[in-house]
Amino acid sequence: MHGPVATTKGEAIARAEEAAERADALRQRADWLTHAILILGVALFALPIWIVLMGSTHDVATISRGEVPLLPGPYAIENYVAAWTEGSARTTRVPVSAMMLNSFVMAILIAVGKIAISILSAYAVVFFSFPGRMLAFWAIFITLMLPVEVRIFPTFKVVSDLGMINTYAGLIVPLIASATATLLFRQFFLTIPDELVEAAKIDGAGPMRFFQDVVVPLSVTNMAALFVILFVYGWNQYLWPLLITTTGDVETIVIGIVRMIGSEADTDWHLVMATTVLALLPPVAVVILMQRWFVKGLVETEK
């Protein structure tokens, strides 16, 4: 009576173990494959950056010979000091430090300005009913279809007529309205329960109080995330600064790099590489800094 039962039970256990082993093996193989793909991806993205980083530590001759150095060279400090303080004297007058400052001011003001304007317009569109509300919303929505590149000539005409060429204002103001950010804030505001708005009304909070005491604190995470995106967007602006900066005074780093690469022959490649590395740093710093913020935000908010 017991015999056959025990056997079948034993068999079943053995079979289950076998299956478990097979599953483990399969899982290991899957792990291996996943890692291979990820490593390949990282290499694809990281290799150019690595080359730039290494290139910035060699002298101009090495790179001009057409070598692609994959190991650090001895000229790191000299190259970076030269780039930071003088820049590539052959093509621009402005040292990298000044261009970095221009880029930084532009990126910060664009990011902050975009957030400030879009959060206010989203607030108006979501929490107030006024005549033409939907019209306003659609007007904002439609500008999504008109990025700077599309409206560049009329914008340029307006800015130049206003005498804003070669000014920070000319660089920043035309880029500062953001339909995307407005829509993102709108989506977020729509998730704020009506009861919260009503509770605040009963507590006696007027629209500005509610904005400052409830809406802004609840939006901090979104603002941090947007700030990162918009800072990088501002930092990487190319076409508009290219048009609007005709002298070195407000030239941004991205434009600077392009102007450094004059003709193939007389480019200071070592300086270009060092400048590129320097230009990478602020966005990276912002991402790392803000990441701590919004990871914290993601963990802490909710309900």
């Binding site: 329960p193 009861e195 009503e198 009304k201 009963i202 006696g204 909070a205």
Partner: peptide, 16 residues
Amino acid sequence: PKDRDIAMVFQNYALY
């Protein structure tokens, strides 16, 4: 609402 001197408790509490 703020001038009516009332207080309200909501179904989902509506705490900040």
